[in-house]
Design a binder for these strands. Structure first.
Lengths: 235, 235
DNA sequence: GGCAGTGTGTGTCAAATTGACAGTAACTGC
DNA sequence: GCAGTTACTGTCAATTTGACACACACTGCC
């Protein structure tokens, strides 16, 4: 211990958890990764993946570790902090502070079903009810954040694989905003904002004319790239 | 203690602080409230107001309490969470998790100078350097957040008193974005977005034609009201 | 092979919005 | 009265938006 001043004795000493709102677009629906709790409290309820922050660990590291534990994979996509909740009246065991994270990722392998750990599954955000703790509110906050960020950043790119078609990118907006967009105007807008570039390739095998394949501009960080002018949701 | 499961023993137990980025527009400059630390660590350095979260307290309550202690006033304006920092490598005393808050408020009474507590003063954000801990980064994050939120929400209203002139509201945008805006186009845009209404009163005594006085639309929450179409910063 | 079906890439066009600025109104101070 | 200053009104071209018509390129089915 250092020589100088210590932490004041009236300061709280809190257990800290992380909770992750992991969002993906699957089959044109915005879905969240939920686990079913095996242990109390809230055994049997659905909940956000997450767990306690261990000693010597940052909340971000804990979020990545818990995601890897519960899905068996290092998660792809974009991870950002969503907010901090608690510590009062949210966990019956004790006062627990929870740092929530938001993961936006391309549809990735369905989490290993069952096993001896807690089962994780993708659930349409519109049918996610009755979550444990205050996870319903956290999930709602995450969805709200994602909806807003699509407008003025290039974060939609975090939802698609490195190479994608205009229709894939458009389906991200349509799923997250739960709306429909005109394909031709959408294309004009995206191509005009210089966040993507054509690869020259086209998809084969689908119905209709083969779609051109695009990729994000090299060196572009989807989280920081500002979309100007923004793509605004219809009123 | 309840009967069922406890917190796992490997979980960290962390001291939690709050730090507040309090922003105000004073004399057409965006300024932040900073204190000068009297005690180590970082004695003599400038820092954000804040302190430890006490037992039985939420971080938000702690932020309001610390602001009241350090300025002698219940702060006006809008308080929102900014993010959570740490707990590693930021406080030499121990691992400390810090929840940062962002306060956007009308220019309010200069904090009581000196006294026996730590002196607080408003400092132009552009000349705030060498802050204690990681407060420089937190302040920068707060300013970035404020800049972005002015575009698509009515949060500029949090910076002005309940009744204000168009020039006052415009000076908020100009100070936060560090730019100049055309008064006539600004007026057209704000009046067209139905977030303010005329009081019918005008200011007296100034130079030039008296300005009309406006107020926020009744029942409008500046933090939630979406500005549509947004007021975008000039490129 | 021809033809419907489907989704993709052009282009067009009116309506709305933006950015820039002329001109007028209303006050203060001399 | 007049200059100086700031606030409000209106105009106008350039840009952007939202909504389509239409041509293109493939699949699947006769």
């Amino acid at each position: 211990m250092p020589n100088a001043p210590k932490i004041p004795p009236s300061a709280a000493c809190l257990a800290v958890t992380v909770d992750v709102v992991a969002l993906t677009v699957r089959e044109r629906r915005l879905t969240a990764l939920l686990i079913t709790r095996l242990l109390p409290p809230f055994a049997g309820s659905n909940a956000l993946p997450g767990g306690f922050v261990l000693r010597g660990e940052t909340p971000r590291e804990a979020a990545l570790r818990e995601l890897a534990e519960e899905t068996g994979l290092a998660p792809p996509g974009h991870l950002e902090q969503l907010g901090t909740y608690g510590p009062l009246d949210r966990d019956p065991r004790a006062d627990v502070l929870s740092v929530a994270y938001l993961l936006l990722a391309p549809a990735w392998n369905t989490p290993a079903p069952g096993g001896d750990s807690e089962a994780a599954a993708w659930v349409d955000v519109r049918s996610a009810h009755g979550l444990a703790f205050d996870h319903g509110r956290i999930l709602a906050d995450g969805v709200t954040r994602a909806r807003a960020k699509l407008e003025y950043t290039a974060l939609a790119l975090a939802f698609v694989p490195p190479e994608f078609t205009m229709a894939q990118l458009r389906s991200v907006y349509e799923a997250v905003w739960d709306t429909t967009l005109d394909p031709r105007n959408f294309s004009r807008k995206v191509l005009g904002s210089s966040i993507v570039e054509a690869t020259g390739k086209t998809v084969a095998g689908g119905t209709g004319r083969p779609a051109a394949i695009y990729r994000a501009r090299p060196g572009l960080d989807p989280a920081r790239a500002v979309l100007f002018p923004p793509i605004l949701r219809p009123a």
